[in-house]
Design a protein around this nucleic acid. Structure first.
Length: 274
DNA sequence: CATGAATTTCCTGATT
DNA sequence: GAATCAGGAAATTCAT
């Protein structure tokens, strides 16, 4: 009889990690306490995008300026990321390397079974401001930096002998983000999260960096949430956007309403960064 | 306390 | 008329 080889089934199972299987009913909420990273899949299965998301998230949480880490060095998928050594991380990210290594290591573990971080007490601030039926919100306010334990700094796990960081340069981790990320980075991050972006903003021209707001007020609300400012509106958000023209973080796109374009000073939005 | 960057707030006027 | 776009001006918030 014709029996389908089990290997085929296995293949199908393991490859179907599409967007429709993860948080269809909000159950994912139950495990976000173990790890602030809402990714359904273990790090090994991350796409390049997800790797970058993770990067930004870590930087965010630790209030480290995103520009202090060359994202190009992490142009890889989760599989490759997970195979990097401690030294690789230092090579790729300098003094932030240990932090990243710590984070990814934890994620690899928490992917196996929910780890108990002890005092991680995230309050359910998912107070559903939601124009979004199924997805709560993208990722913007998934957690509060203050609720995340200072991992790398306190972890004894990585007291590896060759931390030549200490003598080569007591360079402090550069952190000069005002209050989390900047508006344009916030926008960029929504754009780079197609799976979790419930039609808030859409690329008009991916390679040119042209995008359009689909739900301007919803984005403004999210931004307000991020800044703890419940009175944020698109009117005000757009004023801030217009200030970016002068700084060439955004380029002008006229004629088309709600359309903007990243400028030469906006980084991290390209598929293959140069 | 002073200062600067990055918004935030408000507003008038022009366009779509 | 509603929603946006344009900027100027001033206020605010936060970090150094």
């Amino acid at each position: 009889m014709s029996v389908i080889p089990s290997t085929t089934l296995d293949f199908q199972l393991t490859t179907s990690w599409g967007p429709n299987n993860s948080y269809s009913d909000g159950l994912f909420m139950s495990n976000y306490t173990s790890c602030p990273w809402p990714h359904d899949a273990s790090p090994q299965l991350w796409s390049k995008y997800q790797v970058w998301e993770w990067l930004r998230q870590v930087m965010d949480v630790h209030q480290i300026d995103a520009s202090s880490v060359p994202f190009q060095n992490f142009d890889m998928d989760g599989q490759q990321l997970c195979s990097l050594s401690y030294q690789d991380f230092i090579r790729a990210a300098g003094c932030v390397g240990p932090l990243l290594f710590q984070s990814i290591t934890e994620l690899k573990w928490s992917g196996q079974f929910p780890m108990d971080t002890g005092q991680l007490d995230i309050k359910p601030e998912f107070d559903v401001f939601s124009p979004f039926p199924e997805v709560n919100y993208p990722y913007a306010e998934l957690f509060d930096p203050s609720t995340v334990p200072l991992t790398a700094a306190t972890s004894p796990v990585f007291s590896s002998p060759d931390i030549k960081q200490s003598n080569s340069r007591p360079h402090q981790v550069k952190k000069h983000n005002p209050r989390g990320i900047h508006l344009w980075e916030f926008i960029r991050d929504i754009l780079l999260n197609p799976e979790r972006n419930p039609g808030l903003i859409k690329w008009e021209d991916r390679t040119e960096g042209v995008f359009r707001f689909l739900k301007s007020e919803a984005v403004a609300q999210l931004w307000g949430k991020k800044k703890n400012n419940s009175s944020m509106t698109y009117e005000k958000l757009s004023r801030a956007m217009r200030y970016y023209y002068k700084r060439e973080i955004l380029e002008r796109v006229d004629g088309r309403r709600l359309v903007y374009k990243f400028g030469r000073n906006a980084r991290g939005w390209r598929e293959t960064e140069k």
